[in-house]
Amino acid sequence: MTEATASSAEVVKPPPPARVWTRQRILGTAVMGFWVLCGIGLVAYLVSAWDPELYAKYAPYYLSGLLVTLQLVGTSVVLGALLSIPIAYGRDSRNPVVASLAYGYVYFFRGTPLLAQTFLVYYGLGSFRPELEAVGLWTFFREAWYCAVFAFTLNTAAYQAEILRGAVGSISHGQWEASAALGLSKFRTVQKIILPQALIVALRPYGNEIILMIKGSAIVAIITVYDLMGETRRAYSRTFDFQTYLWAAIIYLAIVETLRNAVDWIERRITIHLKR
């Protein structure tokens, strides 16, 4: 027996089967060829349509638009994260009034389009101009930028509340009991025991939410905020040059891919202790 196992280790493996041209391989090569052609076509078009004057004129606009997009998303994601804490807490409240209020909030903001919510804030609150002027909030809601931040914050808070609730809910009840048994206060329990574990679960959904917000923020162009999309629309309406849209697409794609890879990297880093 031992001889057999010893010799089987030395047995030469059969050669790998030759890669034949199956139907799948032909199709795959054809589709890849199509993508490569698209890529070459895109680069060739952008190179041939390259116009230094256009670049000098619109590149600063694109840069400022990009900054506006990042500021808008950054502000509303941070404010939304703060707002999501009481909402997530309210969703699990034993008080039925609080719980149903929080549920209604989340249901409304997740069930309606972000564009409709933005219109509701930007155009709709104009109906209450006398009341808003009376409380001194009109200067806030007059500006498209603040309206966009307001609508986006409310919207992302609803999504983030669900992410937070799901993540905290995924931590087993024993963790709470164990820390109570150790005499930790509720705040310390959340800070030291629950959040570190919940954030691992929540990282990916949070990353997705930020990506969705960056993509969703393009709609503020419709309410005259000059973010990346707004600048693109302005540049297109002045030049009727289609490359304006292609540049915007490339920039958006670059941001989203960077973020996605960053989330992957962070996830690999913080789950090292879970790898076996």
Partner: peptide
Amino acid sequence: ERSLRLAGNIYTTIFRGLPELLTLFV
């Protein structure tokens, strides 16, 4: 088939990464 997988992944990456509004305009 590797090339087929790659082609599919490129498709997803592009159209999941672009804002829907931009795709619509393009």
